[in-house]
Design a protein around this nucleic acid. Structure first.
Lengths: 217, 217
DNA sequence: GTCTATATTGTGATAGAC
DNA sequence: GTCTATCACAATATAGAC
């Protein structure tokens, strides 16, 4: 029923109207991200896209394939949106703060969290999808951050023995304190929420102090 | 179809065999955690538990209710297993290391991650379940860690302006670098995995340096 | 290609014997 | 309470007209 999905970026225009393909993908994406794979029917998708169910099947051979294509689409956006411009390296604190804000803006955005939700949920059933997701998003992002730390090492502005680990730490120092409350939509009454600015500032401080060049220990 | 679930710890022995209740819950728990709510049928659960489907319905009035009870069960285990004994406070580094190891052992265990997977996946459909989960697990754990940092403040061994934030940071400094690779079962080839000991040691270092008492900045 | 109407399978839930 | 056999329905997928 699954497990044999190809991952071309989706070949358009074999006679099909691109506008409808787009509408179907967008509707499916929103529904899947909000409600998950199992809870969404092809009828709902067709209705939300303003087409008939048969048309959906003319564009995508199965629900599995539509789901896979939607994730692929999201990953492309992920890979693009997640790459901030790291031009200015003169002020490390400023650069780290910029990166931290980018992490908050993108990795904690509802759309990104929706993709995470559905990838985590359906990962066991779609192993190839997990790999495609990792390679399109987290992996290049982690690499880019590691390169930032390596550059700081060369300049002597930081002392980072394991840049990959430091990249993960920075991501999760920002993301972690806000992750649960956002991906689970926790009510304010239940869970005292964290202040975004404080999370960002503190994360930058932790990295600066933890990897300060004049370490005596 | 959902949204009105009560959350008593499940009243047993209204004539039902406790052993079968247990078998059903265990089978359902494992299947739900591994495959998610939608992908598991009541037939599968009955077969895995070694009973008939009608028996499952004699013990649990619906699939929703069975799911909710299973999550509740998992949360109790969560609340118990997650609370380490924080007796010795003389050596802060040793205490932090012990806590960090506990985080790795419990919050990254397959069973815990399975509960997270299914909670994240079905959260939007079961809001009450999310609250119950938060109050049974993450909330008391965060509070306990925050109290640890407050105690360290009083002793002067650490200087932590926001103990709740610090608690989140410690959790995610350990959990974050290992989270994706474990909850998504990423293959070694795709994602260079982190070394557990290094993650733990570095997390403790970050906290110690970031919240050292003699801060000059 | 796109629609309406339909075939078919799987699944949540139940009736009735013991 | 537990089983076998069955219902009722929803959802994936398709046939056939245009």
């Amino acid at each position: 029923m699954s497990s044999a999905l190809a991952f071309e970026p989706f070949a358009p225009s074999a006679g099909r109207r691109p506008e409808k393909t787009e509408a179907i993908l967008e509707a499916a994406g929103q529904l899947f991200r909000e409600q998950g794979y199992g809870a969404v029917s092809m009828d709902q998708i067709a209705r939300a896209a303003g087409v008939s169910k048969a048309t959906v099947y003319a564009h995508f051979e199965s629900k599995d394939r539509l789901f896979a294509t939607m994730i692929q689409n999201g990953c492309s956006a992920y890979a693009q949106g997640v790459m901030p411009a790291l031009t200015d390296m003169t002020d490390v604190r400023a650069a780290l703060t910029e990166i931290a804000r980018g992490i908050e803006r993108f990795l904690l955005a509802p759309k990104t969290l929706g993709i995470y939700r559905v990838i985590i949920a359906e990962g066991p059933r779609f192993p190839e999808l997990v790999n495609a997701f990792i390679e399109a998003g987290p992996l290049p992002f982690r690499k880019m951050l590691a390169e930032f730390f390596e550059a700081a090492n060369r300049r002597g502005t930081l002392n980072v023995p394991n840049p990959i680990l430091a990249a993960n730490q920075l991501v999760w120092l920002v993301r972690g304190p806000l992750y649960l409350e956002r991906i689970l939509n926790i009510s304010e009454a239940t869970w005292a929420k964290q202040d975004v600015e404080e999370v960002v500032t503190s994360a930058v401080n932790m990295i600066m102090k933890g990897y300060a060049p004049e370490t005596r220990d």
